[in-house]
Design a protein around this nucleic acid. Structure first.
Length: 567
RNA sequence: UGGGGAUUAGUGUAACGGUAGCACAACUGACUCUGGAUCAGUUCGUCGGGGUUCGAAUCCCUGAUCCCCAGCCA
């Protein structure tokens, strides 16, 4: 058998969404014979979960059709862009699973070719140098309901345009003094077609090109050329570019060069957070959060620090779907995806957030024993570990109630509960700080016959609680996070206020007196654990020798919390 | 009073003239050495009004509402 490739069937359409359906159709009709997509961020901000959605669409479409995927920096505006962002974006795209291999490109590398093409359009008589000021251009554009007026410079000769444009490039003119414009239609109902600016004069050093250029291309002019040069088949972007598609097509058609297809989809919005670059920057600059990797932010750096895995984000992106209607996804879905992912892989461990000392009156002083604890009930291969037990323990303050509420199954005087993997313990008394009324110490007795957690007489307990051995436990700081905003829609504010009025003052709670089991001594930043009954925690980079810091990524579902809420 | 998009349970998304489905959320219950996980179940929907058709979320007409566009930003 020879030439097996001639028999290779075109990939079967995973037509799950309208984009894949369109791509399938293009392959079928012969408009394209392969698929090549790209993710084109401007390096002027950190990526967020909305970008993850875009990446997962761009990359996912290429993957599903056995195509290729490029990472391309749309670095056409040197006044806003920085290398720092380039580096951060590369890391984030890789982390979130967009596989671009070595296909990392920069729009700025195409500036020479773009320039040549611009001269071509000038020669063709469909582009001209305009001497109007920014204000004049703006005024001449007309309004949504009224046509624009033609620029007095619109009918310069090709020679004059060429000369002026070359001198613009040579840096002879000051910023803002002239532009190169496409000659299209000042009366078009689509304002983007009213002689859009192709180049502006900017005497600004570019982070990659240095001082080479005094003129820089505008998005509309540049983007289609970038796609064309890279052989992109499907240029996927968000809805606001729908109005720009006629212009995207116009430039490519005027040039007569390879013509990709632009398809738009709705960007991601999520409850209880904000997604715009400007707002994210505001939050960081104002100190509302600690940086772009603050675990409360929807940035990929923030989610990563919080404890999110790429798999959880993939799952999320797969579930939210792709459509053209503006929508706001419930952040609870993202959290659900994280729980589901971490439930399968996170080792279980015991940690106490708000410690309450327990003394076992009938347990021999100075004795220690090692008890077996399962590492992950969802994964037998994860094995087990030894956990030390002794006369003095710490339990969660909220696992004891002086006067137990209805449906409260945990400890109170006279009640017996199971200490996970250890013994049945019965509370026999407690001490209180007379000044504050705070419970300071619990006294319990244990039943030696229940070692391991089961009673030979078959008696049951209604609750199992977690604990750590006081002398063996490690000190830790835990950072508990809540939504950054108190309302699903941060813009839901009284007249005259902005979204910052809805900032949640309790979005971060730092608990610095936590105690965790000794097996955590060697935990490394980025490692994730389930603290039994509490949630999933991720070791923070602030961790240093002798100082463990954890971020709570997400809580476990909490039936008791619901009961309490209902009153 | 311009142009371009959109509208299906609380939220997100399927159904492409033939039983409106799935997921999250919410609520029941079972089970449980995590009030976790798991399992079983319940509640809840086609923007309005006409029309075509045996049959309409889907086609036609007509309204309504929402989003985007007047950067030398992307």
């Amino acid at each position: 058998m020879t030439a097996p490739n001639s028999e290779t069937p075109s990939p079967v359409a995973p037509a799950g969404d309208f984009i894949r359906a369109a791509v399938t159709e293009d392959l079928k009709s012969g408009r394209f014979d392969h698929v090549h997509t790209r993710f084109p961020p401007e390096p002027n901000a950190y990526l967020h979960i909305g970008h993850a959605k875009a990446i997962w669409i761009d990359y996912g479409v290429a993957r599903d059709f056995n195509g290729l995927f490029n990472l391309r920096f749309d670095d056409t505006n040197p006044t806003k862009e920085e290398q720092e962002y380039v580096d951060a974006i590369i890391e984030d795209v890789k982390w979130v699973g967009g596989k671009f291999d070595d296909r990392i490109f920069y729009a700025s590398d195409y500036f020479d070719r773009m320039y040549e093409w611009a001269e071509m359009l000038i020669s063709k008589g469909v582009a001209y140098v305009c001497d109007q000021t920014a204000d004049q251009v703006s005024a001449g554009r007309g309004s949504l309901t009224h046509p624009g007026t033609v620029s007095p410079f619109r009918n310069r000769t090709v020679e004059e345009n060429l000369d002026l444009f070359r001198r613009m490039k040579a840096g002879e003119f000051p910023d803002g003094s002239r532009t190169l414009r496409a000659k299209i239609d000042m009366a078009s109902p689509n304002l983007n077609m009213r002689d859009p600016v192709m180049y502006r004069i900017l005497h600004a050093p570019h982070h990659r090109q240095g001082d080479k250029w005094a003129i820089y291309p505008m998005y509309d002019w540049a983007h289609g050329l970038e796609d064309s040069l890279e052989g992109i088949t499907h240029s996927l972007c968000s809805l606001e570019y729908e109005n720009h598609r006629p212009l995207y097509d116009w430039f490519l058609d005027q040039l007569g060069i390879y013509h990709p297809r632009q398809i738009e989809f709705a960007r991601l919005n999520m409850t209880y957070t904000v997604m715009s670059k400007r707002r994210l920057i505001d939050l960081v600059k104002s100190g509302a959060v600690r940086g772009f990797d603050d675990p409360r932010l929807p940035t990929l750096a923030g989610l990563r620090r919080r404890g999110y895995t790429p798999e959880a984000i993939h799952d999320f992106c797969d579930r939210i779907g792709i459509a053209k209607a503006d929508s706001t996804v419930d952040v609870a879905l993202l959290e659900h995806c994280l729980r589901e992912t971490l439930n399968k892989i996170a080792p279980r461990v015991m940690g106490v957030l708000r410690p309450l000392k327990v003394i076992i009156d009938n347990y021999p002083e100075g004795q220690t024993e090692e008890l077996d604890a399962v590492n992950n009930p969802e994964d037998p291969a994860a094995g087990s570990r030894k956990v030390p037990f002794s006369r003095e323990l710490y339990i969660e303050r909220e696992d004891f109630m002086e006067t137990p509420a209805p449906k409260y199954f945990r400890l109170s005087v006279g009640r017996e509960v199971r200490f996970r993997y250890a013994y049945f313990l019965k509370c026999v008394g407690f001490t209180k700080d007379p000044a504050t009324g705070e419970v300071t110490e619990l006294h319990c007795t244990y039943d030696p016959a229940t070692r391991g957690g089961d009673a030979p007489d078959g008696r049951k307990v209604k609750a199992t609680i977690h604990w750590v051995s006081a002398p063996h436990s490690l000190a830790a700081e835990c950072r508990l996070y809540d939504h950054l905003f108190t309302k699903p829609d941060p813009d839901d504010v009284p007249e005259g206020q902005d979204f910052t009025a809805n900032l949640n003052p309790n979005s971060l709670q730092t608990l610095s007196a936590c105690r965790v089991e000794p097996s955590l001594a060697a935990a490394k930043p980025g490692e994730r654990f389930q603290f039994e009954r509490l949630g999933y925690f991720c070791v923070d980079p602030d961790t240093s020798a002798g100082r463990l810091v954890f971020n709570r990524a997400v809580t476990l579902k909490d039936e008791w919390a619901k009961i309490q809420k209902k009153g």
